[in-house]
Design a protein around this nucleic acid. Structure first.
Lengths: 244, 244
DNA sequence: CGCCCCATTGAGAGTAATCAACACCAGTGG
DNA sequence: CCACTGGTGTTGATTACTCTCAATGGGGCG
């Protein structure tokens, strides 16, 4: 296991105000701080295996992790894309039903599971925050069914790019509708997330580039020149200003 | 709104030990009992509309409700099938992002949302139970991605029938692998749940009947003569004895 | 008893999967 | 410095599964 502990404090943490610890009072934060440890995982490395004992729960600090299941005949579906501030793990349960893998280099803020469960029991700011995040994740997971069940290949790619643009994108200082971000997944992983083959995923990316919906630089950099255009392609009526 | 209040106590409630109230102490249950009310909804009637203020949260006592989203061009996806003991609603939020509809006649045990949030705040047995149920729902919603993203039409129908067999099925007293249940959804709803057209859903049901995987009586009764056979069709390696 | 909704079945069209070849880039070693 | 190599991505040709359009059948309710 390529786990390299790192010294760091919560004060300068990039996800301090969005993660499970967001609403903590100073003394609650201190309790979490005492049981936390950082772990850096290399791209492609496993984090947890489905069904195996899971000693930690964790927040993603940076990078991207994926949850996936593989059928006996090799078909794989990525069930979740965990980006910075997302919470991985399952209090009150020994195992997760998904393989968890680093899609790009990942830094985790880990909590020993049993200790974390104790904190949940008597710090409402943590348990309420976790419930709220879990309900949001549930809504997001159910929303994803629309993508997988009802959208065409081009729409699926667009919906995926739109999510990344919103969560990872940096806005151009001169043109607020122009957004740039880096793809944390390979074409194969994108396909497995979207329920497509990698060839179809690649073809639709090319088509979006030909049609001017996106621009690309190198393997992983994507530029969205007009976010509203991408929203239309993704059948997304939401303006993205709602929610927390 | 076809809401008909009904007199009833928690003592004889069919979902008493599985719903959000499962782990309550007598006095906690009494607090819930004071704010609860029953509602009977006719098949096909709306329960909540996406985005509209939601005054109640509720447990499904009997029947089946569906969560759904409809795209502007009319494509519909059912995002969740809520069966007895499932919890509908979203503490700490004014609205749900899905339409909620009764698929068959539904009885709900409702709690006024604001009052329920207060109870969450100071009865750990309820909030822990709700967190646990929400985490289970999240796992289930993510599992569903495998069905929508990677399974063929015949496998999707099989996976759906298997879920119903496990949750609603009555086992034959002479043959424990023989299970009977009643379909709470029309072909169109099944198709919208599985990301298929109703014609494809119907054809695959017919094919499973021809191949002896299922038998049917009337429109809605399904008999699974051999549950193991259905599991194979659904690519399900789980024996269903785990969990809770 | 008749109507309407729901379900079934058929024929043809279209989108994505499959099979296959090639291009690109990064890292490695001669 | 450049050829080599393997992983990753792109593009093309063909196949196959599901969708679409269409007609018919059957069960339940007024």
């Amino acid at each position: 296991m390529p786990l390299a502990p790192v010294q760091e404090t919560c004060a300068g943490c990039p996800i301090r105000h969005r993660a499970v610890c967001a609403h903590c009072e100073p003394q609650e934060l201190e309790r979490l701080e005492r049981i936390k440890s950082y772990a850096d995982i290399a791209a492609g490395a496993p984090i947890f295996f489905a069904g195996e004992p899971m000693r930690h729960v964790a927040s993603v600090v940076s990078g991207a992790a994926i949850l996936s299941r593989t059928l006996e005949d090799g078909r794989r579906q990525i069930n979740g894309l965990m980006l910075p501030s997302d919470f991985i793990g399952r209090p009150w349960r020994e195992t997760i039903p998904f393989d968890v893998t680093a899609a790009s280099p990942v830094r985790l803020c880990r909590f020993e599971r049993i200790a974390f469960e104790k904190i949940l029991g008597d710090t409402p700011h943590v348990s309420e925050r976790l419930l709220s995040m879990t309900l949001d994740d549930l809504d997001a997971a159910r929303d994803w069914a629309v993508v997988l069940g009802r959208m065409a290949a081009r729409e699926r790619i667009s919906a995926f790019l739109l999510i990344l643009a919103r969560r990872l994108g940096r806005t151009d200082r001169h043109d607020p509708s122009r957004v740039t971000f880096s793809l944390p997944l390979t074409r194969e992983a994108i396909a497995d997330l979207l329920g497509l083959t990698l060839e179809t995923a690649s073809r639709q990316m090319s088509a979006l580039r030909r049609d001017g919906v996106i621009e690309t630089e190198g393997r992983s950099t994507v530029i969205v020149p007009d976010l509203a255009r991408l929203q239309e392609e993704a059948q997304d009526d939401d303006d993205g200003t709602g929610l927390t």
